[in-house]
């Protein structure tokens, strides 16, 4: 099977013509997770995490179009599930306390309807997460890919939808931040956005600007509500602190 590498960014590695055989050429390094048969599953997993955290550009430039999207999906599912597990645990422990604190800020609008999940809700949520992940990742990749096409980021892309999907799978590593209680969710959100931009830039061989715009379109359209909520909560907390101090 002729392997089609996503042409690496020049000048570090010379570009390969699409569909050209890489036989005889020095093998460029691959994402460790794509070499799990050689490295072993545990080592490949750990090395991939290390690479994505320490050198995300290099990590995403190592992705190959090798006809497999299932293993990257399983990689993403593992970390997403881990994040969901910790989120639910923290929610179970701190949920009521957080709600009491936020109620002091003022009217929470529609978010006031949210209640911390109980133990049964937590177990159900963790149990059905793999199914929800498959739905969310596919719809998310579709939306992001449309945005990438809208800004022209895929014009010279050596890959297509597969590259977008793989990036979204590998950025799930950011869910590791969920082990940090309370602030972990926010760190995960920011890390996911940053890694997604870097991933799209490398995989689709586009500019940082195009990748940023493509990532921010759905965030702006769909998460405008979350932004308002955060501004309201932090603004309210700041105002309360200032009035208490003054």
């Amino acid at each position: 099977m002729a392997e089609e590498p996503f042409p690496p960014a020049p000048p570090s590695i010379p570009p390969a013509a699409e569909g050209a055989s890489t036989e005889g050429a020095p093998a460029s390094p691959r994402m460790p997770w794509e070499e799990r048969d050689r490295l072993g599953y545990a080592d490949a997993l750990i090395e991939t995490v290390k690479l994505i955290v320490t050198a995300p550009s290099e990590a995403f430039s190592r992705l190959r179009s090798d006809g497999d999207v299932i293993w990257p999906l399983l990689f993403g599912l593992f970390f997403s599930w881990l994040g969901q597990f910790f989120n639910q645990i923290w929610n179970l422990i701190f949920g009521q306390a957080m709600r009491s604190m936020l109620e002091g800020v003022g009217d929470l609008g529609p978010f006031g309807q949210l209640t911390p999940t109980g133990l049964i809700g937590t177990v159900i949520s963790i149990s059905i997460w793999p199914f929800l992940f498959a739905i969310f990742i596919l719809i998310g990749a579709g939306i992001y890919h449309l945005c990438l096409m809208l800004v022209g980021a895929t014009n010279t892309s050596p890959t297509g939808f597969e590259g977008t999907l793989k990036v979204l799978c590998y950025v799930q590593v950011s869910n590791l931040a969920s082990v940090i209680p309370i602030a972990g969710g926010l760190i995960t959100m920011v890390a996911t956005l940053v890694l997604t931009v870097i991933g799209f830039k490398e995989v689709h061989r586009t500019t940082t600007g195009s990748a940023v715009v493509a990532v921010l379109i759905p965030v702006t359209l769909c998460c405008i509500c979350c932004v308002i909520f955060l501004v309201m909560v932090f603004g309210g907390a700041l105002a309360a602190a200032m009035s208490a101090g003054g």
């Binding site: 099977m1 006809g67 999207v69 299932i70 498959a134 596919l138 597969e162 999907l165």
Partner: peptide, 26 residues
């Protein structure tokens, strides 16, 4: 190819098609 493997694009398309179909059915 001679050992019966599909070209990369076909494999990716098939996996994505099956995944999309499974999500729709679900």
């Amino acid at each position: 190819d001679p050992i019966g493997r599909q070209p990369v694009a076909d494999q990716i398309g098939r996996q994505l098609g099956l995944l999309w179909g499974a999500v729709s059915l679900s």
